[in-house]
Design a protein around this nucleic acid. Structure first.
Length: 142
DNA sequence: GCCAACGTTGGC
DNA sequence: GCCAACGTTGGC
């Protein structure tokens, strides 16, 4: 699963629009509609086998809800080649969602982009260490 | 619902 | 190239 050279990401979605449960139901989905150049450039770097934290934005509370996998290398949006689409697959929903407050409270995650004020980037790279830390937190029951 | 932070657009 | 106006994101 953790192949050499694989990368880790965080992808945001509003659960009212598309949640981890929707992904669980669908198994895979095309991650489309990203209209931010920085986020697009990160999508372009996504490779099959990469893992992504599935983040629920505009949620109560905002949280990392689970893990998705990149199941196919990114490709230009056929409708609008300026933008990029990537296919993501369901991996798991955390037994316990890891809230933004908890991310902020963890000193080991102080560099995590999503904890920074005003961080609106909807696709972000995450270090392996941060990914493991959050995945471990999601496993723990309270 | 409010508003701060950020991105984009377009006049100059 | 600057910057004001506007639109969007997303926490609270």
């Amino acid at each position: 699963m953790h192949n050499a050279g694989m990368r880790y990401w965080l992808i945001k979605s509003e659960p009212g629009t598309y949640s981890i449960d929707d992904l669980k139901r669908d198994k895979t989905t095309g991650w489309e509609g990203v209209r931010n150049y920085q986020a697009r450039n990160f999508i372009r770097e996504m490779k099959k086998g990469d893992l992504a934290l599935f983040y629920h934005s505009n949620a109560n509370p905002p949280c990392v809800a689970g893990v998705a996998a990149i199941v196919k290398d990114a490709y230009p949006d056929p409708e609008n080649p300026t933008w990029e689409t990537v296919e993501v697959g369901y991996v798991k929903k955390f037994p316990r969602a890891v809230s933004l407050a908890e991310l902020k409270a963890n000193p080991r995650l102080s560099d995590l982009l999503v904890t920074k004020k005003g961080s609106r980037l909807s696709v972000q790279p995450v270090s392996r260490e941060h990914f493991e830390e959050i995945a471990a937190a999601g496993k723990k029951s309270v």
